[in-house]
Design a protein around this nucleic acid. Sequence first.
DNA 1: CGAAAACTTGACCCAACTCAACGAACGTGG
DNA 2: CCACGTTCGTTGAGTTGGGTCAAGTTTTCG
Lengths: 246, 246
Amino acid sequence: MPTPLELMVRKLRTRSSIGEEAAAVILGLPHVSRIYDPLTYLVREGQGDLDRCSFVVSGQAFRQKLTNDGAREIVSLHIPGDFLDLQQLFLRHADHSVQALTKLTTIDIDRRALRELAMTHPSIGQAMWVDALVEASIYREWLINIGRRDGVTRIAHLLCELAVRLKAIGLGDGRSCELVMTQEQLGDAVGMTSVHVNRMLKALTEAGVIERTGRSVSFGSWERISTVAEFSPAYLHLDLAENNAG
Amino acid sequence: MPTPLELMVRKLRTRSSIGEEAAAVILGLPHVSRIYDPLTYLVREGQGDLDRCSFVVSGQAFRQKLTNDGAREIVSLHIPGDFLDLQQLFLRHADHSVQALTKLTTIDIDRRALRELAMTHPSIGQAMWVDALVEASIYREWLINIGRRDGVTRIAHLLCELAVRLKAIGLGDGRSCELVMTQEQLGDAVGMTSVHVNRMLKALTEAGVIERTGRSVSFGSWERISTVAEFSPAYLHLDLAENNAG
DNA sequence: CGAAAACTTGACCCAACTCAACGAACGTGG
DNA sequence: CCACGTTCGTTGAGTTGGGTCAAGTTTTCG
């Protein structure tokens, strides 16, 4: 059971090189632990002057935006090891809301301290850059997913992404995922109706691609589901050797 | 007519504070000018080891991803003043392609030089952060646009965004935009068919929201189109005072 | 000036949405 | 620990926004 800051070091090291000295500095960061109930807002759209940056220790969270008629789009999901709002380091006003999906534990770090850290320790600054750029890469993948893939593929793709991301931080086996979201939330994440999500899950189940027990989903074969999903993990940039070079 | 590097300074200053000394350093950056024909690839998906970072001087470019069956999603549009591939500064492999939309002029800057610059001049590093974070914000807006808004709104929203972004760098009047894309490309950007794009443009025209002459579109009234589009420019973070604080 | 690309429009179709009903699971208070 | 209300999931029936196909028409450009 790593401490929150050990988790942070471990997470950054999945994509960047962090030396012993830099790691020690991170482990000494002042921080405040927080616990949120499900559906609590961490940040509200339009809110300004946030002086902290949160890092997910356990549980999940999501970002969302609303249309004028109240339809919701969940634009990203966050799992342990994710920074929430690196954005708040440099932009004053939130252009979206951040909400806890489950019971959520975070640590909050002062934005100035984090910026200072990024400047005095380039390897940490770079790791934060990598983190932000990977988030952008995920947005791009979600754009093509929602814009160009059909229902079954879309859902399957999200399942694959979740399984891979969870595995990358040591949660789950990469062959299944514990869906922590309702089907309505799932729908809001892929731009569909909850009813249609339900039908697509049924289709995937009947095709033998997944098995379901309650909200937990397991993949019959990774080969199979990743084919159906058109899933290729390159966009997650998980290969350390590939990042942060030169 | 600003030089390319003057344009870069001006662009960074639209969202961040850059002092005189930092500006002078930017103006002294070694760079190589390049000219691309329309539809030339600047970066191909999967490509690695890019050691340069491009900055758009004139013309437009876009990023795209393809599905297995060849459908295309244009995930972002880039106009003069945009950095292409800040990503390449820190990630080794491209997860998408970058292509010239029109005849395109860029300057290329060595990635090490740019990274060095970001480290030695924190205000420049911060401006680059802001730039990358705003790009992410645009991705989020496109996600809700494609995932949750109907055809007319989607198209109108893209028109509004283009007009505002162009105006922000001193191109166009914010009340119209010269569409440089074909309707098929427009469709790929909003997740629709070219046929449907055509019908939506027709609907907007018939409703008196826009007027068209060839590919140039002008807005009857900003009030009107921004309402139809559900467009609010907050996500572009154009207010300097709001960014880069503390 | 002619060929190719882009745009436009109509007819038809289907994936996904809406509406509605019901069953299952879950949380809460008595 | 059970009762019961509420949220979540499931399924059917009918509708529709946007896709497909195809045939012109206009524009662009060599």
